[in-house]
Amino acid sequence: MLSGGCMPFSREPPLPRPLEQDRSSADPDADPFEALVHAVAQDRDRNAFAALFRHFAPKILNYCLKLGADRGMAEELVQDVMLAVWLKAGSFDPAQATVGTWVFTIARNRRIDRLRKEMRPAPDPDDPAMTPASLATPEEAAQLVQSSRQLQDAIGSLAANQSEVLRRSYFLEQTHEEIAEDTELPLGTVKTRLRLALGHLKRSMRDKA
């Protein structure tokens, strides 16, 4: 069973697409891969699939190699992830994420499953016990939109050197020591930058009770 190919929260109203606010949603050329995913979903288009494969397979391979897979395992994961793209193309929702982010989430889930041999718990959007955003009061709903915008702004205004330590720490899962060695920065500087980066993002959170 392929896990994690579906959009996790696809029943929620669309939000301003993360990091893509300057893109007009009316612009059909905004994400060239959307049309390819659509062609795979609607027409089982092998050429569209091959184009997606040529773009994403090297990224998936590189991602898995950086996270500790050997070459054979990395190739198996490329195949797994791309097969999930083929099977789940119909559930891709461009209002929720770009194709790149969608493929990333599939790759992330598959490598946790295969490489770390762990489950990745996730909410079930069909669960009657899930609190839908539509149940928020008007005040809460306004706050949701505002905090989402504020986080987008905070991410967009992260200093490049802070974004880089976040990337290494969370995306590449490097320890503080590994980051210091790779970037030739003192360990204290790495820790400071990480703390500053998280502090910058935290300021965007809505007020806590």
């Binding site: 996790p8 929260f9 929620e12 939000l15 697409r17 993360p18 990091l19 893509e20 929720q96 994420a97 770009t98 790149g100 982010t101 969608w102 493929v103 990333f104 989430t105 992330r108 909410p123 609190t131 839908p132 955003a133 928020a136 706050q143 949701l144 905090s147 989402s148 986080l151 987008q152 991410i155 976040l166 969370y170 995306f171 959170m205 809505r206």
Partner: peptide, 16 residues
Amino acid sequence: PDCRRRVASFEALCGN
């Protein structure tokens, strides 16, 4: 729902 959006934003950053 607030944290779901927050996670979606972080996923988008990882997607980039």
